[in-house]
Structure formats: C-alpha cells, structure tokens
Amino acid sequence: MTEPDRDSRDPGLQPERTRLAWRRTTLAGTVVAVLAARTALQSGPTAARVLTCALCAALWLGFLTVAHHRIRTLTTVGSGGPPALTPKHATAAAGYTMALAVCAAALVL
C-alpha cells in the first residue's frame, strides 16, 4: 500500500503546474485583446474597427472557455492522474491564437 501512496503524492505537482501554464497563457491572450481594443479605439473607431475589436473579444472568450474546461479537467484528478489534452482542444487553442493574429493584421492595416 505504500507504493501507490508515494505515487499519488506526485512531488513534481504536474497538474498544478499545467493549470498555472493555462492561466499564464490566458493572461497573455488578455494582454493581446487589450492591445487590440487600444489599436481599434486609438486610430478612430470606425464600424469595421469596432466589429474587428468585438471579434477579438469573442476569440478571447473562446480561448477562456477552452482554458476553463481544461483547468476543470485538471483539478478533478482521478486515480492515475488527469487525462491528457485532446487534439480537439489543442487545435481550438491554437486556432483562437491564429484568428487573433488575423484580426490584428486587419486592425494594423
């Protein structure tokens, strides 16, 4: 019985570190979204700019949803550790980032 006990202690605190990595990434996304809003408002808020800015906010919310879902999965640890990240979520997170970059290009031009 001592063997599983030692394993479940997980001295590396891997789920916690992964959770914090998701938080950091969300924070980076927030900074980008705020910069997008600043760019849209600074150079005269036309309808197209406001729309792009709203799209950026929606993308940020999408990223937040993925991160929240993953963080909840990581906190409900069963035996044998949390399940791995699914390709669907990984693709979604990367897709939101790419869409943010496209919106940024539209705002800069």
Partner: peptide, 30 residues
C-alpha cells in the same frame, strides 16, 4: 500522465510565444 502534461506545458509555452509575437505586432503599430 506526467509526460503528457509536460508536453502540454511545452505546447502552452509556444502558444504564449505566439501571443507575445502578436502583442509585439500591436506594439510596433501603436
């Protein structure tokens, strides 16, 4: 599972790098 989580953190670190580059693009413009 620890290896999978380490891989996930590497993925997130690259995503942060991407976000930092996007932020850099905004910063150059602004």
């Amino acid at each position: 599972y620890r290896f999978s989580l380490a891989n996930e953190r590497t993925f997130l670190a690259w995503l942060r790098t991407a976000l930092a580059l996007i932020g850099g693009g905004f910063a150059v413009d602004q």
